[in-house]
Design a protein around this nucleic acid. Structure first.
Lengths: 307, 307
DNA sequence: GCTCGCTCATAAGGTCAGTTTATGTCGCCA
DNA sequence: TGGCGACATAAACTGACCTTATGAGCGAGC
């Protein structure tokens, strides 16, 4: 195979083909401030460091990103596009950071949260980021588990606020609905169902072996209830990610939260199969011990999660 | 201010608080393969390197991520959560990479794409990633510009396939609708409109000064047409990002593509204002010179962008 | 008109994270 | 009991990134 630099795509770690997070962050600062030196000051590095870093990013990407002039720097057209893409990477990294900080076990936590897996995975990092923007001094700790575990932690006073996604609210807890979630049927683009014209009905769904989460998971509970306990598993897997991977690889149709498959749907790695006559909607709820209305930081977080 | 390690959040570059992309990628490989050594082999590094890198990631995050045993490594509960968050960062980086590769000017491009800004920003990286998965040898080049520029490049045979988002199809081009986009009215959560009970109507919208893209942009065209050329600018800004930033900071209400504000809405940095009686829908179209139906790589990409 | 102040570029040296090679320990299995 | 696979530890190497120091272009004000 020919080895001309970067001719066509070659598989391998993406980390060696993209600038690191620090460089992307620097680029965002340059875009915002219109100056390499200014961006350097904001990030606490020197101007030559910023200059060299942007230059090596341009060399790596093979594209000029900023127009330098003696009175400032502006993004080129390509630079503007790259900056927008970089912003999405940095935002994902910020969500990672917000989540990871909450996982650290700390005695000084001011707000202890317990959440179901789906919520912890997809929604909480964003909420924590918003909370941090409002109240930077609130140290949050997070524990993820199923509904029963969330209830247990709340009742044992090991958590101040919980989030669950089941059909029922565990006893001993008060709750408020904060969002709605729909389970959807998905299949790989090559699957026969992806070319159906007629929506699927409940009987067909119940008759077909599906890739599912294990019995006892929130997702499975909702599906079993909607089908009258009849869902037939093709495979049972213990994480949303594993189910997605199996469905993408074409192992069969799967039922998943729409929160989990947004990306896959928009990139056509999976297609949603319309369903009629069966409602796979479920409520996402914030929960707390009966009578103990959230106050302080818990109340702040709760108010962020609702409109 | 006290300096206990990592007690509460302190502003500063996120890059120093999160593992780098290589470490996240390594973690994903460990999760998938169930072994540090296996992950190391996949990424082309040695086992001690992988071991040390995972260890330093655990030290940085203050959380155990993998359970090591003499016969493999499995993620801890916290590790599974961290891995899910890391996956989103890596996916954003892959989209960045796919886009950036297309920006490089190459003589050997097999597919030359011209796209409007909004599409290039939000949709194309995903399509390019999907195309790469299907046809790894297709070298793509990308040029972003407004509708007129896209048409010009196609007609001058400088591009094989274009994507536009205006109301009308430039003359000389055939087109097919590939998706729909809605403009929505957004405001910061504190804005008076965010507490409205009644939907906004066209007259109110036309009477209120708005944060807008400059005249001539696709977004502005749609809005002006819907309101009968009456949109009143509060400020005119030349990029979607700038408009978003102004709206988030509370400068006033803005009108933006729903593609551009998904993240901001779900994190409540902006709220959508319901609108009645005015349709701000627009079609996203693939375009090509009349008569020259896309073939080869252009056809592959086109078929990815439709259901 | 000259100098100050802002911008970015270049050069030389230091530091540290991440890497490799080499070796040790643990548990399982034939 | 020896062999194999997986992970840990130690020591030395490498390179990316940083800093300090200095140079050069452009514009504004005295």
């Amino acid at each position: 195979m020919s080895e001309q630099a970067g001719e066509t795509y070659r598989a391998g770690s993406v980390a060696h083909r993209v600038p690191d997070l620090g460089a992307m962050e620097l680029l965002l600062a340059v875009a915002r401030l219109g100056s390499l030196g200014g961006a350097a000051r904001e990030l606490g590095i020197t101007q030559p460091a910023a200059s060299s870093r942007i230059r090596s990013m341009e060399r790596q990407l093979g594209v000029a990103l900023v127009d330098r002039s003696p009175r400032g720097s502006r993004l080129t057209d390509a630079g503007a596009l790259v900056t927008d893409w970089a912003r999405r990477v940095v935002e994902a990294a910020e969500a990672f950071d917000a989540g990871a900080q909450a996982l650290r076990v700390r005695r000084d936590s001011r707000l202890r949260v317990a959440a179901s897996m789906t919520i912890a995975e997809y929604l909480l990092p964003g909420w924590l980021l918003a909370l941090r923007a409002q109240r930077p001094d609130t140290a949050v700790s997070l524990h993820a588990g199923n509904s029963a575990a969330v209830a247990e932690r709340l009742l044992a006073d090991e958590a101040d606020l919980g989030f669950v996604e089941g059909l029922t609210v565990p006893t001993g807890l008060d709750s408020v609905v904060i969002a709605h979630d729909n389970l959807i049927v998905v299949a790989a683009p090559g699957h026969a169902w992806s070319r159906r014209r007629r929506p699927l009905d409940g009987a067909e769904l119940a008759a077909t072996p599906l890739i599912l989460r294990e019995k006892g998971s929130g997702t499975r509970q909702v599906l079993d209830a909607a089908l009258g306990g009849l869902a037939r598993p093709l495979i049972e897997l213990s994480s949303t990610t594993a189910v997605k991977a199996a469905a993408v690889s074409g192992a069969g149709p799967a039922v998943l939260s729409e929160l989990a498959v947004g990306e896959e749907l928009s990139m056509r790695r999976l297609v949603g199969i319309p369903l009629s006559g069966v409602s796979l909607a479920r409520d996402l709820r914030a929960v707390w011990p009966t009578g103990h209305r959230p106050v302080g930081p818990a109340r702040d977080l709760l108010s962020l999660t609702r409109g």
